[in-house]
Amino acid sequence: MKTTLEVKNLHAGIGATKILNGLDLVVNAGEVHAIMGPNGSGKSTLAQVIAGHADYEVLDGSVRFNGEDLLELEPEERAREGVFLGFQYPVEIPGVNNAYLLKAAVNAKRRHLGLDEIDAFEFLKLAREKMATLGMDPIFLNRGVNEGFSGGEKKRNEILQMAMLEPRLAILDETDSGLDIDALKTVAAGINELRDPTRAIVLVTHYQRLLDYVEPDFVHVLSAGKIVRSGDKSLALELEKNGYEWVKEAVNA
């Protein structure tokens, strides 16, 4: 099986605060992994480091993507290589058109792969198709990026971007937070749609409920900046029942 993401002994922090303390993780193509853990355990930090946020400093360890050193690449290069981060808090950018961003993103990737740019007609057709499956009104294409979107609309917009960009590795940071049950089901269906033998998906989540709809192959528990337990989907149910204290106690014991 082809390894997509290989994180080894990753130490990282922001400013003087160290957050990740020797994290190891291997995600193969075709797999869905869930990373769970209490607040402050380092889940979002891991996602931001993989996407290349400059505020986070890597102190030790390595991150390889399809065998290449990911940490050497700029955020935009990572994106064009096929890394996608679904933001926990998608940014509102009034004045930048949603359709423009989507098209520019798709074309940046296509140029990188040596493909012709997508034409306007083809782009609109594709975007409308994907929006229909996500239950998004095409009017959202004409709005500013996430401008005035509700929490659920923002998350759908992230999934739309993912669907258009067809990444090799998708990291979805708390994509389930702030969603009502209907929105959760739609977003989950959007994620399931993208499950593919060539694609790796990492779900970063605090709660188990997303995993009722997107069934993970592996579940990891992150605590104090490292993975303390790994298992199959039953681990998520155990966590739901016993809470994170149970893991911490198990680790300390």
């Binding site: 996407a51 290349g52 946020h53 400059a54 700029e74 955020p75 935009e76 990572r78 994106a79 064009r80 981060l85 933001f87 998608p90 940014v91 950018i93 930048v96 423009y100 961003l101 520019a104 993103a105 940046a108 990737k109 990188h112 990026v145 971007q161 960009l165």
Partner: peptide, 16 residues
């Protein structure tokens, strides 16, 4: 960062 994480280079992100 959001724009760059979608594949846009810094120059274009700043311009937008």
């Amino acid at each position: 960062f959001y724009l760059r994480s979608r594949g846009l280079d810094t120059t274009e992100a700043r311009r937008l």
